[in-house]
Design a protein around this nucleic acid. Structure first.
Lengths: 340, 340
DNA sequence: TTCATCAATGAAAGCGTTGACATGGCGCGC
DNA sequence: GCGCGCCATGTCAACGCTTTCATTGATGAA
């Protein structure tokens, strides 16, 4: 049987209250007693029960994190940012993988709230109106990262300016002499990020006076195989809609696209340039190293945590709620070449 | 204020106990009452407090997972296996990132135990004797994955047969006509995996009558840059200790090695063959696709969970404790070529 | 000397839930 | 018609901790 606070108290010849104080407010207890209590705890290898503590305290020092899939490549970076910031504030994070299912995401809110988390970070999936009922009845703050809200409940989100980011990509490509630019955009039923990036692409083209061609755009669900297949389709239309560069909505799709290009005898970037998006750790490990847009995952995670902690101590004012856009950064590596 | 079980009870005109029963043993309550209670819960959007429940129940339905680093590439796969299996048994997993620090790992045991997890999965780092005091005072089962124990406390571990796996790598390389085989081995102060794989390499060479050369072996800490630098050193000795193939202790190092090779004008596999280890998702996404050894991460995770759950319900007999070796698999892709 | 003040501690209630035990009503067999 | 047993429900203590309030003895000012 594990030692309780009462066991320690008995051993130290004091009351449980004193032991508790020794733990939480050592300044309130006599140095001598403190010493005795400490020794007793040591001897019995006492470990306070965080559960009981949380119950009594009425807070659990825990943040909930809902991610769509643990194997999504961006997960690690984001988690790191969140975990670090949480730790810094003395909090633990409880992870919940919704496995890309809307039902499981719903469930995630209930489960996490049942665990008395003091806030929930929801990631990457668009929050639609069907989340409203759940959001309404939740009495803890929620913050979004890498996504935004289309629900009625006002929600704050931390993300980059997707439109602007893809605009920058086009601008960069143009500056390298490309005019025939294809895109492999992202498309998921519960994702708006893909549309925004596509919009940025169109804006970019427009800005530089380049005509937008439907035939130069393909879609994929952000994963490697999607990128491969999308590129395959682009290649099939190559003669009607030629291109010298392709920008993609994720590094993983960029990898797939490159692979497809290689399989068809094209070299990257000599024959065709490819741009990634995300700047995951792998981006610098592959050949050619990926030129890509860096999302500030760590900062996004850290900011989200900070916001949540503030919001859980005092209800955020309406002006605090909204979209926070963090700066992205274009990372130049090897997958794009200049053409004359 | 969040609704409690008593609020629901009052609204439904029953006692708290009945509500609790409605939740956990609906068969014990009158269908009509049940309906009333259910409606009350619905209306108040009652969410049982898992913390209080755990306290009363005296178990938390939670497993602890200690990983050395969230950004280690194998993490996602392992976590997935663990999470799935846990879910299947109605458990949640509490994640703890030790950030490759021994102190933080120690702390992890305390913290998780404070959260009343019913078992702890410890990953990837060698468990040395300094863990003994902590392990001793812990009254919950611990299981190791992707590593093993050098501590006095008997511990069970789930992993592959590292020696055999690397032996198989050598055998494969030999079967493809290679006789000059270099190795980039893993080395971390708190890791024995590296040594085991190196041992497998030596055994393989011996078995095929190939002389072992120190000059053909380099070490790295499993990451990309380590692989790159190790390959650099191997290349520096190329004229004294030539090789046609390199086997590595991790996919990530293999990537680094390939990159280094490319930077020096060598093509993989045309000029030099490279083997990875782990079979991470990226292994099939890079060019050339990595020929590598697949570790059964999902199974290892799942088995660890199963063992833990069994152990937490009844103390494991000494015969249950030990090393469980799961089958690895050599995955043939493109980074190795046959030579005559 | 007396009384207010203060530091150190203890007693007890309460956090939200469960589980053992008690109670009351009902049906059934004799 | 009586008692037995069972079903549905209620009561209350307990889980391990924190916190409020009360108590004690010592200190210092009047």
């Amino acid at each position: 049987m594990r030692a309780t606070i009462r066991d320690v108290a008995r051993a130290a010849g004091v009351s449980a209250a004193t032991v508790s104080r020794a733990l939480n407010r050592p300044d309130l207890v006599d140095p001598e007693t403190l010493e005795r209590v400490r020794k007793a705890m040591e001897e019995m290898s006492y470990q306070p029960n965080a559960i009981a503590r949380g119950l009594s305290f009425r807070r659990s020092d825990t943040l909930g994190l809902i991610v769509p899939g643990i194997t999504d490549f961006f997960f690690n970076e984001l988690y790191k940012g969140i975990d670090r910031a949480s730790q810094h504030h003395g909090m633990k994070v409880l992870l919940y993988d919704s496995e890309h299912s809307r039902e499981r995401a719903f469930e995630g809110f209930s489960i996490l709230s049942g665990y008395q988390v003091s806030g929930i970070i929801f990631t990457s999936k668009l929050v639609t109106e069907d989340y409203d009922p759940i959001l309404q009845r939740l009495d803890i703050p929620v913050v979004l990262t890498l996504t935004q809200s289309a629900a009625k409940t006002p929600l704050t989100a931390f993300r980059i300016d997707e439109v602007r980011a893809m605009f920058d990509v086009v601008a960069y490509l143009v500056s390298r002499g490309h005019r025939q630019i294809a895109m492999i955009a992202g498309k998921l039923w519960d994702d708006r990020t893909g549309e925004l990036r596509l919009e940025g692409y169109r804006e970019g083209l427009r800005h530089f006076g380049i005509e937008y061609w439907d035939a130069r755009v393909e879609f994929g669900q952000y994963r490697f195989d999607d990128g491969y297949q999308a590129m395959q389709r682009l290649l099939d239309r190559m003669h009607d809609a030629p291109f010298t560069a392709v920008c993609t909505a994720s590094d993983e799709m960029a990898l797939g696209a490159i692979r497809c290009l290689n399989d068809h005898g094209y070299r990257v970037p000599e024959d065709i340039s490819v741009m990634g998006f995300d700047d995951l750790p792998i981006a610098r490990m592959v050949t050619p190293r990926l030129t890509t847009v860096a999302q500030p995952f760590l900062e996004i995670g850290a900011e989200a945590v900070k916001w949540l902690i503030r919001a859980s101590s005092q209800a955020p004012s309406p002006s605090d709620i909204g979209d926070y856009l963090l700066p992205h950064r274009l990372v130049e590596r090897e997958s794009v070449r200049s053409i004359s």
